[in-house]
Design a protein around this nucleic acid. Structure first.
Lengths: 111, 111
DNA sequence: TAGAGCGCTATAGAAAGTCAAGCACTACGC
DNA sequence: GCGTAGTGCTTGACTTTCTATAGCGCTCTA
């Protein structure tokens, strides 16, 4: 299917998956529990978040620690590899602030 | 809906849209025609590509120039703002090469 | 004792992406 | 001149992905 496997393409594929960049940004600030993370990201639903976290964990970007089963308490945090995406998020942030037009939907909200 | 509008969130939303990062990477190398771009990106279909290009143009990241109507020939290229994402793509690339494990699906292809 | 919170999962429905075909032509080989 | 390939898309039908809603077992707070 994929021809020769290009790590760069694969990375772009991973980062373009809906919510992944947001999840990474949230975890860059601090570790979070599941629901807490959902709120920090804003707008994800539990099913999707769960799928993303599982994938990011398998890929070694984040680490999941079960702190207690009952009451349930889980902690998600970035691994070293995950933290190294810090620079990417920073660059995107700087770019976004430099180009707010590029990033905003043409507002057609009637007054 | 969106609370206060955060340009950084908005930028992440834009970049996480399927194919956008790939499109930007392809155009970073050189301007492309439509079908040419589709091939460069690899795996996009025309309908989606068309939608993405339209959006990226509205946002001012890329510029579309019709060089001739018949035979049809169009050129897509990055604007200044688009080119400034160069650093982001570069950082992702470097990260991807440093962490090939993080980026590759666990191969479970039976021999 | 009631209500909210935790970390999820299951199931249905809406939305987004894909495939295949096709339009109206031009450029090339023969 | 004729068939084949290429250009830049658009239009349905179909499939994959994401979303909303509900709920589980349990604890902790009021």
């Amino acid at each position: 299917m994929e021809e020769d496997f290009c790590p760069i393409n694969a990375a772009l594929d991973l980062l373009q998956e809906k919510w992944n960049l947001h999840i990474i940004r949230a975890l860059l600030r601090a570790p979070h529990g599941f629901n807490e993370l959902a709120r920090a990201v804003g707008g994800v639903n539990a099913a999707t978040l769960s799928a993303r976290l599982e994938k990011l964990e398998r890929r070694g970007l984040i680490e999941r620690t079960v702190e207690s089963v009952m009451p349930p308490r889980t902690r998600y945090e970035l691994t070293r590899a995950g933290q190294e995406l810090h620079g990417v998020i920073d660059l995107v942030s700087a770019w976004a602030l430099r180009h707010p037009e590029a990033v905003q939907d043409e507002v057609q909200e009637a007054a």
